[in-house]
Amino acid sequence: MIMTQTTTAPDRAPEHEARLQMPELAPDVYKAMVRLDTAVRRNIDPVINELVKIRASQINHCAFCIDMHTKDALAAGESVERIVQLSAWEESRHFYSPKEIAALELTEAVTVLTDGFVPDDVYARAAEHFDETELAHLIAAITVINAWNRFGVATRMVPGHYTPAGS
């Protein structure tokens, strides 16, 4: 990830500092997470992967990951409109394919786990659109972004400085 430093505009609240730096303090854990993320990325549709990452990050209130994955999605050609509507995708279904909707439903079920399990109907809808290998990788992608979100929120990673590769 490429980071750039910017200053906060005078009419905005001051930027907070991160609590700690995971890559420096737990380098083996951080590198393992990067490897896991890379393995998932090789085996999932890149558009669905970014939609999953953004939606889970919204649910988990991870501002750093929302910033990063929104920028990555835009750099990859995703539309602003679809990204903006993602937080209300259930009311904006017409922006997404049935396969993307199934991925978003599964993302919410795996991320929230309010009932302690992923409902059978949500899993069945995802299984209609993804073969077993794709479904395994989708579940892995959802799991990985949830882990990244927990690192980001717990350490208060600072959003706004990420620049997508190639930018």
Rank of each mutant, 00 (worst) to 15 (best):
A136H: 13
I139Q: 09
A141T: 08
E134N: 03
V110A: 15
T133V: 08
A126F: 12
F130G: 03
A126I: 07
T107C: 07
E108S: 05
H129A: 04
L113R: 14
E105I: 04
H137R: 03
L135F: 04
Y123W: 15
I101A: 09
A136Q: 11
I101Q: 10
V122G: 01
E134Y: 01
A102I: 13
D115R: 01
A136F: 10
A124R: 15
I139S: 12
I139L: 14
T111M: 11
T114G: 09
G116R: 00
E134Q: 10
A102S: 15
V110F: 13
A124Q: 15
A124W: 11
A102V: 14
F130I: 04
E108M: 02
K99V: 09
E132G: 07
T114Q: 14
L138W: 09
A136K: 11
H129R: 05
L113F: 11
T111F: 11
A127M: 02
A102W: 15
L135A: 03
T107Y: 05
A136R: 14
L138R: 08
I101S: 08
E132R: 05
L135T: 05
F117N: 10
K99P: 08
A103Y: 06
K99H: 08
L113W: 12
D115I: 03
A124D: 15
L113E: 13
H137A: 02
H129C: 01
V122L: 00
A124E: 15
K99R: 15
E128K: 08
V122Y: 01
T133F: 02
E105M: 13
A140Y: 00
V122R: 02
I101T: 12
H129Q: 06
L135D: 03
A109I: 01
L104K: 10
T114H: 14
A124F: 13
A126H: 09
T114I: 07
D120C: 01
